[in-house]
Simulated scan of single mutants.
Amino acid sequence: MTDEQILAEFRSADALLEGHFILSSGLRSSRYLQCARVLMNPARAMRLADELVARIPAELKARISAVVSPAMGGVIAGQEVARALNVDAMFVERPTGTFELRRGFRLEPGQEVLMMEDVVTTGLSSREAIAAIEAAGGTVIAAASLVDRSGGAAQFAMPFFPLIRLDVPSYQPDALPPELAAIPAVKPGSRAAI
Rank of each mutant, 00 (worst) to 15 (best):
T2N: 08
D3H: 06
E4F: 06
Q5A: 10
L7P: 00
A8K: 04
A8W: 08
E9D: 06
F10Q: 01
A13K: 11
A13P: 06
A13Q: 03
D14I: 03
A15W: 06
A15N: 12
E18K: 14
H20I: 03
H20Y: 07
F21W: 02
F21I: 08
S24G: 09
S25P: 13
L27K: 13
L27S: 02
L27Q: 12
S29I: 00
C35T: 11
A36W: 08
A36Y: 04
R37W: 02
V38A: 11
V38E: 00
L39R: 11
N41K: 11
N41Q: 09
N41S: 13
P42L: 00
P42V: 01
A43K: 05
A49I: 02
D50R: 04
E51H: 05
R55M: 00
A58R: 15
A58P: 05
L60Q: 08
K61C: 14
R63Y: 09
R63S: 13
I64P: 11
A66E: 08
A66I: 08
V68K: 04
V68S: 07
A71N: 14
M72Q: 14
M72Y: 15
G73I: 01
I76T: 10
I76A: 02
G78M: 04
V81Y: 12
V87D: 11
A89D: 06
V92E: 05
V92N: 07
V92R: 08
V92D: 10
E93D: 13
T96S: 10
T96W: 05
F99I: 03
F99C: 04
F99E: 00
F99M: 05
L101G: 01
L101V: 13
L101M: 02
R103Q: 04
F105D: 03
R106D: 13
L107T: 06
E108K: 15
P109I: 06
G110T: 02
Q111E: 15
E112K: 00
V113F: 06
V113S: 02
M115W: 09
M115C: 14
M116V: 14
E117T: 08
V119S: 06
V120W: 03
G123E: 10
G123K: 05
G123Q: 08
S125E: 07
S125V: 08
E128P: 12
A129M: 03
A129D: 12
I130A: 01
A132Q: 03
E134N: 06
E134F: 13
E134V: 15
A135P: 10
A136Y: 00
G137T: 09
G137Q: 09
G137F: 02
G138C: 08
I141A: 15
A142M: 04
A143E: 07
A143H: 13
A144V: 00
L146S: 07
V147W: 11
R149H: 10
R149K: 10
R149T: 01
R149G: 01
S150H: 14
G151N: 12
A153P: 14
Q155R: 14
F156V: 03
F156W: 05
M158V: 14
P159L: 11
L166D: 09
V168M: 10
V168E: 01
S170F: 07
S170Q: 08
S170G: 11
D174Y: 06
D174F: 00
A175D: 15
L176H: 13
L176E: 05
E179I: 12
E179N: 03
A185W: 13
V186S: 09
P188N: 09
P188Y: 09
R191W: 14
I194N: 12
